[in-house]
């Protein structure tokens, strides 16, 4: 078997925040009736985190659940476990109306860390990044310059971004540019 590599193979950049491509991450798209016990149990069962509410995300290390739309969840797992988790979901939801697909290799994930992360995201997304409006735990699908992206804050000084793998290089370029030393605006300082 060939070695799987992520889009940018863990590239990093140090600006006024650090930008890191997080390497391979397991991601499963799970669609179905999110209010049904079956889907909830399967999602919670494979990740071990609580069911997120509307536009929320719950993560523990590399595992987590994110609310993507009224009928879609993103199940995050370590890359090596994604096959097992998918099989587990299929087993738990057998006979039910659902869809679960391994999308790990179709996505890229970035993490930016530092005091100015809110500002970096505010430069790129039409989202209110004010500390009282965008809090850790909020999951927001939006537009990052010209590409769709999903963002959330694992903590107050970090943002994680998911985008399509095909545009990972563009996303990395955007983040580098927005994090360039000397380009601080100081909006949320």
């Amino acid at each position: 078997m060939s070695d799987a590599v992520s889009a940018l193979n863990g590239a990093t950049y140090n600006g006024f925040v650090t930008v890191t491509e997080l390497g391979l991450r397991g991601m499963i798209t799970l669609r179905g009736d999110l209010s049904s016990a079956g889907v909830k149990n399967a999602a919670i069962g494979v990740t071990g985190v609580d069911m997120p509410g509307q536009r929320q995300v719950h993560t523990v290390k590399e595992s987590g659940l994110a609310w993507m739309s009224p009928d879609e969840l993103l199940v995050m797992t370590p890359y090596a476990e994604v096959g097992d988790k998918l099989a587990q979901i299929d087993k738990l939801l057998k006979g039910k109306h659902y869809l679960a697909v391994n999308v790990s290799d179709a996505r890229a994930m970035f993490r930016i860390e530092g005091a100015g992360v809110r500002e970096v995201m505010a430069k790129l997304c039409p989202v209110d990044m004010a500390p009282d409006a965008f809090t850790p735990g909020v999951f927001r699908r939006t537009r990052m310059a010209q590409i769709p992206a999903a963002i959330w804050m694992p903590s107050d000084d970090a943002v994680q971004i998911i985008c399509f793998r095909s545009v990972a290089d563009y996303a990395f370029g955007l983040l580098k540019d927005a994090a360039e030393p000397g380009s601080e605006v100081g909006l949320f300082a």
Partner: peptide
Amino acid sequence: PSCGVTGEETEF
């Protein structure tokens, strides 16, 4: 009305 996000028109 589906996800409750209030966004500007380029997101739509």
